[in-house]
Design a binder for these strands. Sequence first.
DNA 1: TCAAGTTGTCTATTATAATAGACAACTTGG
DNA 2: CCAAGTTGTCTATTATAATAGACAACTTGA
Lengths: 242, 242
Amino acid sequence: MSMQDTATSGVALWRLVADGIERGIADGRFAAGDKLPGEMEIAETYRVNRHTVRRALAALAERGIVRAERGSGTYVEAQRLAYPLRSRTRFSEIVGADGREPHGRLIETSDDVATRELSRELGLKPGAPLVRIEAIRLADSTPICVSTTWLSAELFPGAGNVFAATRSMTKLLEHYGVHDYRRGATRITAGIVDATDAARLDLPLGRPILVVDATDNDLGGKPLVTKHSRFAAERVEFLVEP
Amino acid sequence: MSMQDTATSGVALWRLVADGIERGIADGRFAAGDKLPGEMEIAETYRVNRHTVRRALAALAERGIVRAERGSGTYVEAQRLAYPLRSRTRFSEIVGADGREPHGRLIETSDDVATRELSRELGLKPGAPLVRIEAIRLADSTPICVSTTWLSAELFPGAGNVFAATRSMTKLLEHYGVHDYRRGATRITAGIVDATDAARLDLPLGRPILVVDATDNDLGGKPLVTKHSRFAAERVEFLVEP
DNA sequence: TCAAGTTGTCTATTATAATAGACAACTTGG
DNA sequence: CCAAGTTGTCTATTATAATAGACAACTTGA
């Protein structure tokens, strides 16, 4: 790992080391509670100065992924939330199944009008009035994802206020008489978190995110809501059932 | 976007700007062929020096995502491969449907033994002999993903040689009398590319990847192969059907 | 208790990132 | 043709990343 790599990648060396260690944890090469190799040994494997390793470990410690114990070693502290993508998916159930407490928090809501893209997803006319809800979802106190959700303002008048009160999309839909719904078309890709989402997800800049665009339909297949969600990749793992 | 952000994120400022512009292209804020805002304007929106913007644009140009024209402006050149995750998914068909030519390239094959994890995926005993195939898949000459594939060495003797000859997993399975198969459990997450994969995918370090762990089964549901694939996130978009 | 191995902290030096300003080279539309 | 707006290139300065070495503080196991 020479200096040239950094020059062309725009990623600091210590960050590459931190990412490598984190990947090792995600892979299971280092399990929760395990002791990492010593700073000197890590420095040798990455061909990097020990101070650079220390900075990498400090960054991981800051995020609660490892914990350094003076004189003893540095230990692992992490793991990911398993997130099944079934046709009937409820955030609260997934988090509950992991033994954690689900929370929702409203960031803001606003009126909006359908772009061509949004109108197609929701089966409306371009320019149709929409309600936009920006929200964050957490497991215990750890932010898992931020979502931008759009609903028809005509079908769901005052949806923003209802969400503010219930802080749950499922309860919001129930309020309008929708007692069940199903996931429709879903697109998944990955990207790098932007400054706004980084603050909301409590992530450092430059971290990977899973970007999910999805539409939920009623049981007749009619679109109800469409969402643009950004998940902290280090905190979740999507499970696609066969 | 102040200096402090960079200090704590380990990502260079120019890289954040480049990622922002790339996100704009992925989002559709800038379409293929569009002219980007001027360097001065970009510098103002990101609150960054024009030289920093130039470096960001140079990096994007290097990767063929934008093209600068002196005196005129900088123009967009990119887009993503739509990759449906159906139960019957064939790389060649997906790439062909996009009007591009699918290719496979063998990196290496080796004998391996099943870890507890692998044995569970494949329905074998821990320690069972496996064939490991490391391969890269391309659309035209653009690398899309690298995959590590494991098969039972007893059920598929000499699988490495067969893959080297056919360069296709579908043809390999056909060689052993498997004429159809289905995707089984699939796990998706995101991460940052490591140095080895970066070279194979022709990606700069620090770019996001989609990490997919999947098992393919025969029509009776018996596991055939299990794969660990890393996709260049900037080149694909997974579509999960309802 | 002690030696070996660990993390923590300090000083110093060099390479690179980012800023700043000026001007050249070129394109476009009026 | 010309003026306005664009990208390209140069010099210079400052802040930060990364390296290097030394030693302190602490833990562990023999």
